[in-house]
Each structure stands twice: as C-alpha cells, then as structure tokens.
C-alpha cells in the first residue's frame, strides 16, 4: 500500500510541475496577444504543446516507477500508450 501511495505522489508531483509551466506560458502568451505582439502565438503554441504532452510525461513516469517496483504488466501497458502516442505523431506529420 505504501508503494502505491509513493507511485501516486511521484506522478502527481511530475504533473504539477508541468501544469504550472504550461500555465505560465499560456498566461504570458495571452498577455503578449492582448498587447498585440506577434510572438504571442509562439508562446501560446508552446503552452498548448506542453499541455498536450503532460499526460505523456505522466505515463512515462508511471512506466519508470512501475519498472522500479517490478510491476511489469503495468509498465507494459504504459509503454503501449507511449507507442500509440508516437504512432499518432508519425501518422499526422
């Protein structure tokens, strides 16, 4: 039970860092947009990109932590999700 709690907390901490980074970028880009600065779009796209890639990082963290805890079935499923994500990117480019 203690292992499970640690896994949950570590993933939550990883997601929190990414969440605040994305939020900062988006706030900054909206501020630039309201000031009619062209480069705002770059910041907004970076922020949105970070939002979209946050779950991927969460899944990656889950895969690593589950590997360390020898929960291989859980790790395999996490890697499958990452593979699906890579396929989505490759097919769309």
């Amino acid at each position: 039970m203690k292992d499970n709690d640690t896994v949950h907390l570590r993933i939550a901490q990883t997601l929190r860092v990414l969440e605040y980074s994305a939020l900062g970028l988006i706030l900054l880009s909206l501020g630039l947009y309201l000031s009619n600065i062209d480069r705002a779009v770059i910041g907004a796209k970076a922020g949105i990109g970070l939002v979209v890639f946050t779950p991927v990082t969460g899944v990656l963290a889950a895969a690593i932590i589950s590997f360390l805890n020898k929960r291989y079935r859980y790790m395999a499923l996490s890697l499958l999700i990452l593979l699906i994500f890579i396929v989505a990117v490759v097919v769309s480019v």
Binding site: L23, Y33, P55, V89
Partner: peptide
Amino acid sequence: IGITAAPAAVIYMLRGDIDTFKSAAIIL
C-alpha cells in the same frame, strides 16, 4: 481521459484544427 485525449489532440494540432488563442483562453 487526458491520456486518451492527448494523442487525438496531437492529430488535430498537427492538422491545424486548433484555434491557438481560443484554446489558450479556454485552457486558462
């Protein structure tokens, strides 16, 4: 659902089917 939506969002994003600033405002 975030894990589910993320790869689909990438497809829409790379296809240009996302309004950048409307998305940014809604995300906020």
